[in-house]
Amino acid sequence: MRGRVWRLVVFVFIVGFTLNLVGIVSHVAVSSLARRWFATPLPGAFTTEWYAYAWHEFQLPQVLTVTATVAASVTALALLLGFPAAYVLARRGFRAKNAVLLLYFLPLLIPQMTYGIPLATSLYRYRIGGTVAGVILANLVPMLPLAIFVLLPFVEQISESLEWAARVHGAGRWQVFRRVVLPLALPGLLTAGLLVLVNTVANFELTFLLSGAGSQTLVVALYYAVFAAGMRPIYSVDAMAVIYMGIVLLILVAALRFVRPTQMVFRLGGK
């Protein structure tokens, strides 16, 4: 009996929280389609013109180009540098392993505002700050460890005896990589790639600290638009928000085909 009540309370809480999420998201969507909306359940008239307005006013073609460039570069670099690292971590023990793991873990643990300011200071000093390259390099700091930690269990589950079997039966190191390791690690690369992609698109703090006029990604542009609310109609800001949401959701849906929702956050591992 007590158990039932308890479960009911939990269920009601979950439903409430979910409704609040749906409300938050759909309020933005409805607002983006409103001609005018003021203290009524729904706007009196709908329009799609705010999208065209936002497209021009917020220079979305340029912002989207930067976003795509940053996201694609960070993803490619994170996989390129991260896969070899994940492979070694999965396969070998070495003396500095714990130190290396800590080094990978810290950028994920420490909030970006904390290390972003010294990082930005350094990058501006070398005139990389404010450029697209600077945004890419900065985003790679947390995304590289993310890629490594996502890849790690995927590599671990490729039995080493498969590599041994390939070696014994005549495959050299490169052939083992190309014919055995790579095809078997593909789901992991895809998963890691999608997670890095969605996280880079949505990553605010580092991009915010490192981007200049021509190197803002969509989420930073959205921040400035919300920050300067009142300069432009809120409906157009929400139209930009919906565009952003659409992009993130698209990648998210793709990612969720490969990973469970609980894999989208840190995984706590017991002994």
Binding site: A202, V226, D238, M245, P261, V265
Partner: peptide
């Protein structure tokens, strides 16, 4: 759980804008 991933994936800025609307003085 999929729905719960949304705010994580969408990030702080969008959630903030959504809260300003939904929880705002004229919000739902």
């Amino acid at each position: 759980t999929t729905l719960l991933v949304l705010p994580i994936a969408l990030g702080t800025v969008l959630v903030a804008e959504g809260i300003n609307g939904f929880y705002g003085p004229k919000g739902w």
